[in-house]
């Protein structure tokens, strides 16, 4: 099948921070467990499973009373045009779909967390319970079924919208232009144009005032975390060898890697 390029956009200005999107993402992922993994709804809805919140909230506060800024930024996969996570994944578990969505194949993921380390936006989250890494899928299944993403459909105030890329971009630019005029400062659509060479354009865009770009976690020059991060060569070495086998014997591979990567995974235990 062939699909159009799709996109999602989050508008910080019309967002009323009701978190309906965040909850909707979380419930949708629980529904997916139920749908795809025979998990009962009774169980999926009442277990903590924090890694299923693919849309995360990060509150930052700056300044001194009473001149204080307080912003709850949303962290989610940006669906980079050049997904560093995909490049590095030793198990070939990550793919960029025709819609623009960058998706981790959970069956193939070996939990090495290489994607987490290189992601310029610190997006993927490792779950100690399942031994796998998770992130926003741009609701690939919903988009290809002609539905909006679960975050967009939840938004009571049209602050997240999804659809064909050119439509999303044109609406987003219209809004940014309007805000720039009304509020007399520059608003931009982060990700509509190439951000930098590392990530390229983004399929999940954000409308925000330029002056608040850091508060909303929208760096001007995002850099891949390969050099920083933890020491991962060892893990990758192990995982790459067995990576090809992952699709057929996902669980066995995952156990093997977990053993060899034990120490390296420790620092994530508090997540």
């Amino acid at each position: 099948m062939s699909y159009d390029k799709m996109a999602v956009c989050y508008d910080t200005q019309s967002c009323i921070k009701c978190f309906a999107c965040v909850i909707s993402c979380s419930t949708e992922n629980r529904m997916r467990l139920q749908r795809d993994y025979n998990y009962t709804v009774e169980k999926s809805m009442v277990e903590e499973q924090p890694h299923l919140n693919y849309l995360r909230v990060e509150v930052n506060e700056k300044g001194k009373f009473p001149n204080v800024s307080q912003i709850a930024a949303f962290k989610h996969c940006q669906h980079c045009d050049n997904p560093k996570c995909m490049e590095i994944c030793p198990a070939l578990a990550i793919s960029k779909k025709e819609t623009g969505a960058v998706v981790i194949n959970q069956e193939r993921c070996v939990g090495c967390q290489a994607c987490k380390d290189v992601c310029p936006y610190d997006v993927p989250v490792f779950s100690k319970d399942t031994g796998k890494t998770y992130k926003c899928t741009m609701c690939h299944d919903r988009l290809t079924a002609g539905m909006q993403t679960a975050c967009a459909v939840a938004c009571p105030s049209v602050a997240i919208f999804s659809g064909k890329q050119e439509e999303v971009i044109s609406e987003a630019r219209k809004r940014a232009e309007h805000y720039s005029k009304v509020f007399n400062k520059e608003y931009f659509v982060y990700g509509a144009d190439k951000v930098n060479d590392t990530v390229g354009t983004l399929s999940y865009m954000t409308i925000a005032p330029v002056e608040n770009r850091d508060d909303y976690l929208l760096p001007a020059d995002p850099s891949s975390g390969v050099a920083g991060g933890r020491e991962i060569t060892k893990v990758i070495g192990t995982a790459a060898i067995i990576g090809t086998a992952a699709a057929v014997a996902g669980h066995a591979v995952y156990s093997a890697v977990k053993l060899s990567g034990k120490d390296e995974h420790k620092e994530n235990e508090n997540e």
Binding site: S2, Y3, M6, L143, T144, G146, M147, K164, V168, E171
Partner: peptide, 16 residues
């Protein structure tokens, strides 16, 4: 506006 415009199917050819 925001929501209504964007519900179109992303499929290029085949019926969904």
């Amino acid at each position: 506006a925001g929501a209504a415009v964007f519900t179109g199917s992303p499929l290029k050819t085949e019926a969904r």
